[in-house]
Write a protein that binds this DNA or RNA. Sequence first.
DNA 1: GCCGTTTTCGGCCCGACTGTTTTCAGTCG
Length: 572
Amino acid sequence: MPVHNSDIAEIFNRIADLLDIKGDNPFRIRAYREAARTVAELSASLAEMVHAGEDLTRLPGIGKELAAKILEMVDSDSLSFLRRLEEEVPGGLVDLLRISGLGPRKVRALYRELGITSLAGLREAVKQEKVRQLEGFGAKTELNIGEELERLAASEQRLKLATAMEIAAPLLAYLRQTAGVLQVEIAGSYRRRKETIGDLDILVTHAENARVMQRLVDYEEVEKVVSQGATRCTVLLRSGVQVDLRAVGQESYGAALHYFTGSRAHNIAVRRMAVKKKLKINEYGVFKDGQRIAGRTEEEVYQQVGLPFIPPELRENRGEIEAAARGELPRLLTLRDIRGDLHAHTTRSDGQAGLEAMARAAGQRGYEYLAITEHARLVTPANGLDADGLRAHIRDIDRLNERLDGILLLKGVEVDILEDGSLDLDDDILRELDFTVCSVHSHFNLSRRKQTERIIRAMDKRYFRILGHPGGRLINQRPPYEVDMEELIAAAAQRKRFLECNANPDRLDLNATYLKLAREMGVKVAVSTDAHSVKALAHMDFGVWQARRGWLAADDVLNTRPWPELKLLLNS
DNA sequence: GCCGTTTTCGGCCCGACTGTTTTCAGTCG
């Protein structure tokens, strides 16, 4: 069984947690965490790199020691260092770190003093009021641990971006109504438009900080106040979402926004650059010899370390700082660049709106074209079309196009890739269409090898054009199927095929890592909504954000082109 | 444990809030 990058990342994080509980050197611990991050975000397979004899120490944060450990994991599927570590520190203690308020020191005390090695053991000790007797603990701490244990049992999934936006909108409006409030901005992973959000980080500038803190505490959706100070306040909403509010003076707005937008890794890298220039960056500004020299805007902060402004979507320390320093950041895609949508359904298959309603809605969005890509035969629950149904579909579109003004309907299909890699419609009907979206909707459980070969066989078919939702995941519901995405992207490059960035907020598929790889390998991407309703055409925002996280510029995207140009590209 | 155009040794981002404290460690972001 080949070892996946995610397995290796998980083991490095586990080692970091165990070393933390043990009280090891904090910088050593951080080295493991940074290595875990590098590994988790790497698009190439470490196992394959090892087999190809590549030098792993060229990867950031991987030195001789960690490269050797990766080698051992790939070769033997285990790690002797981890086994030895778990003889010293019980593995169950790692679970205790998930309790908010429990860090390595407290966990160690619980283990040493009370022999606790699991969440169940902790629950029992809280019940018997043993925890409050420990030095450094008290009744309040014990109470908090009890509450957190219950919360942990409830659920701890990250919020989908779209859900976070629904929760944030009314809260933002409420905070903006506060007397004297100047600026209100949501920072954190929300501002970076990550596909899922852990909590809401809100930054305000205000004349009287204490009042805006109280304003948050008084919000009707607040269930619990975790902490409340002069410049910072943390609450839990009834929806289970944690909100962190920070207030700074206007002169610090840019520095604070930069700091609270993160990512953490990006911030650390920028601060390291500052240290080299004898500067200090914190959330209040950029300081030289104790004097504030910048901080009103984010641009000022970047300028002090010799960088241009870096868009929030890129701030993951995935090479954006180096690219910015070289002046090679892409000019990221914007919604205004989008000229049409290349994936939509109507009531003819499983959509909720008719052809004309979809066309007019697309026209109102300012699009030049909209492709109707109904499901083909196999997906019967989705009322998929057979060849005759598709011919009727083509006639309807031709007829409607004669009447429509300003918007062109394109004739497409979303055809299933069957288990053997063939497409679920014959060439003699596919050739009558403008293009195809080809998707996997079945047999998700094939082996990685078989799934990869299946899709590449499909790419070889004459009328294959765009691979729909290439990873097949549903966020928080279904993991992506096992597939060698790097190989798929290379195959698409060779065959002049295209990949979809599906904008549905439940999919956001491809993910940012693979979008970036597609760009690097010269594979163009369709940013498409897969809309099944008029309303869902507006999901294009999410697609554009995801594309930006994948470093895509307008030129990397198919549907930024006028139809005549796009048509040539699709058939080149 | 990683890293290097001041360094192969000696650094490694920085500040707020809580709880249990008699001056601050631990945790968090």
